[in-house]
Amino acid sequence: MHYSVCDFLLDIVQNSIEAGSANIVLKILEENRLLEVYVEDNGKGMDKEELEKIRDPFYSDGQKHSKRKVGLGIPFLLHAVELAGGSCNIASKKGKGTIVSFSFPMDSIDSPPLGDLPGLFLSSMCFDGNYELSIYRRNKEADIDYVLHRSELLEIIGSFNKADALLDLKDFLVSQELASGEVVS
């Protein structure tokens, strides 16, 4: 079972990449003790019937693993949302893409912790392929507001496969979670 919101998100982003998306938009917004998350892709999408089935943990389209009988990513998320009294909406169009959005009340004891955002962003960018990932992050109370684009970061660091480049990128991502003017040792 996933532990944090970041775990759910890495799973969803990976689904988007595996669905052949060229563009993925990830928004993580916190305001008034509500966490709102939105993932939009332009991958292969799903029809109404498939969309219904992804809620079933004992359903998998069998394309990735032909004998596998489970698909747990979305059922994990739905279970966590239901437990915490949040909300979740999944919309999809075959051939067009999918939008997954969900929210968690941050004061609920059953809401999962947000988790390691810089680690999520790093891993989300490091899958093979030429997809664009645009990240919008805002936490009004903490004075955090930034936008990241995978293509722009790749142009700067040169590679998502080299350890030294990834360490610099991780430092950069960690620093984005600081408020303007905030310095930590």
Binding site: L153, D171, F172, S175, A179, V183, V184
Partner: peptide, 13 residues
């Protein structure tokens, strides 16, 4: 550590 800009990341690289 303070908030890093894209230009600072570029320079570091």
């Amino acid at each position: 550590m303070a908030k890093m800009t894209l230009e600072q990341l570029r320079k570091l690289r």
